[in-house]
């Protein structure tokens, strides 16, 4: 028995992942897969650093990680966008995830640090080589543009400096509507006490504005000792003002909808995600799906 989820241009992928929760227990276990969408690829360091990072992430129980290539364009001269190294060149055999039988899934992600609107080129062919696309806007104007128009998956929030602008309701709501997620990374907070204050202050400002929706928490770790386990990361985000449920979603299902959003962006019209449910489980009828369990029509009792 197969369950279909349609993610089209009009419906945000967050809504799609909601639909999936209505399935049987099988789909519930898919929901709670943990992801860490930010492992920094150090250009200068050799491959062993990244390898140990991925191995540690698998040991901690992350099923999907994304290797982040940071691209910071300067106005002076034209720079080349880094091209991702295929993961099978980096590591011969991917480690098995803790508690599961599958190997870890590794994605590539590009983060563009923007200080000018010309830095983001919507039709650049280089972007298509990456699985995920993130922007880090440094001015309010760019933040507004990133939320409302840019075709990206993740908007990074500054964690190493005081917030250069205030988050306004309108762009943030626009981003949530379009299925773009906001990212808070915690490894700067682990490194230094001043950064910790900035991280917590900026994250609280964000969570206040977006009410805990579409926030993902990721590590941005460069060394393996900067990674934290998924439960720790979820509990840590309680400090950012997220509620218990939102904190758990920040490391699992919101990340999943980000990955689905990225797949949608790469394909032309939309994607179909199929999930196998157990044969005994009958799927709920389509009109019942949206209603909570208590409001569904009760089956007629017969004598």
């Amino acid at each position: 028995m197969l369950m279909f989820t349609f993610v089209t241009k009009n419906s945000s992928s967050r809504h799609a992942s909601r639909l999936l929760t209505c399935g049987g227990p099988c789909t519930v276990s898919i929901m709670s897969v943990f992801m860490d969408l930010n492992l920094i690829q150090n250009q200068t360091e050799d491959r062993s650093g990244l390898k140990s990072l991925i191995e540690t992430a698998a040991h901690l129980g992350f099923s999907t990680v994304a290797v982040n290539y940071v691209f910071e364009p300067t106005t002076k001269k034209k720079q080349n966008i880094p091209s991702p190294t295929p993961i099978n060149e980096l590591i011969d055999q991917l480690p098995i995830v803790q508690g599961r039988s599958r190997p870890i899934r590794v994605l590539n992600r590009l983060t563009i640090v923007m200080s000018d609107s010309s830095h983001y080129r919507p039709t650049a062919a280089e972007y298509r080589r990456f699985d995920l696309l993130a922007v880090y806007p440094t001015t309010e104007k760019l933040f507004h543009a990133a939320c409302m128009t840019y075709d990206v998956d993740i908007i990074c929030i500054s964690v190493t400096e005081k917030l250069p602008f205030f988050f306004k309701r309108a762009p943030v709501n626009g981003a949530i509507e379009r299925g773009v997620a906001f990212e808070v990374s915690y490894s700067a907070a682990i490194r230094d006490a001043t950064m910790r204050r900035y991280t917590i202050a900026n994250a609280i400002a964000l969570v206040d504005t977006c009410k805990g929706k579409n926030v993902i928490v990721s590590s941005a770790a460069e060394k393996r000792l900067e990674l934290r386990g998924p439960h720790d990361a979820a509990n840590l985000s309680l400090l950012f003002g997220l509620s218990d449920a939102d904190a758990k979603e920040a490391v699992s299902s919101t990340c999943r909808s980000v990955v689905l959003h990225a797949e949608r962006r790469k394909s032309a019209g939309g994607i179909i995600h199929t999930t196998k449910t157990s044969p005994e489980e009958t799927p709920p009828t389509p009109d019942d799906r949206d209603a909570p369990a208590a409001k569904r029509a009760k089956p007629l009792e017969t004598e």
Binding site: L60, Y186, A189, I190, R196, L225, E226, L227, R228, G229, H231, D232, A233, N235, L236
Partner: peptide, 19 residues
């Protein structure tokens, strides 16, 4: 999560806790 090292018997062991 903010524990980065444990000091024990004169050695500083850098580590992290995973719950």
């Amino acid at each position: 999560p903010f524990i980065t090292s444990i000091e024990s018997r004169g050695h500083k062991i850098s580590c992290f806790f995973n719950c």
